[in-house]
Amino acid sequence: MLELRLVQGSLLKKVLESIKELVNDANFDCSSTGFSLQAMDSSHVALVALLLRSEGFEHYRCDRNLSMGMNLNNMAKMLKCAGNDDIITIKADDGSDTVTFMFESPTQDKISDFEMKLMDIDSEHLGIPEAEYDAIVRMPSAEFARICKDLSSIGDTVVISVTKEGVKFSTKGDIGAANIVCRQNTTVDKPDDATVIEMKEPVSLQFALRYTNFFTKATPLSSTVTISLSNELPVVVEYKIAEMGYVRFYLAPKIEE
């Protein structure tokens, strides 16, 4: 038996909107730790890792570890039917081939339930070790989204370089080239508006903008984004989900040979 009650149901709606274009089908894993997912895009270039910790739910019952295969587009369709202020409860019985999403309006005058068919998904899980990164950039998520969108109108790839001067996003295309430099800026009114750069080593890596633009669909989840870079590793783009967990996107770099 599984029953997870999330008072801030809009978080789950935003999570689905942030990952459904990158991944079609995924297994949601439910354990005493929380509600989680790890899935790669069909090209195995990008990976999404989601964690919603059990403490973040108002009620969290998960009698035994459960993995539920879902089509994310169908799940998003159902969650779109929940109001932004609704409480969402996810329910599943042991051995059942369906999951139920229950939506309660804040005043309890409208209660809906949507039953979705589960699917068997043969997904490949990757072991991702905790790593020390050469550079970690924290910046406003809207700024990062703007940069990825702007650069993708010029080129297909972005080179992200971190030096002590700041973080530089560069692209080149048929019509020309663009460079955007963000300097560390901690003297802002609101901490979430700051750009903070922690650098151990200078880093320069190239990525497909098509994927970074997918990641920025998570912008509504968090006012800040953290970009962790090492010369020998995929980049990690992390959006924290208030008090509950995170959505992390991993993206393998492009390399020149």
């Binding site: 270039v45 072991g127 020998e232 590793l233 393998a252 390399i255």
Partner: peptide, 14 residues
Amino acid sequence: QIFQKILVDYFDSK
């Protein structure tokens, strides 16, 4: 030439 690496070049399958 620019090549796109894939994730299993970096992380092991569990």
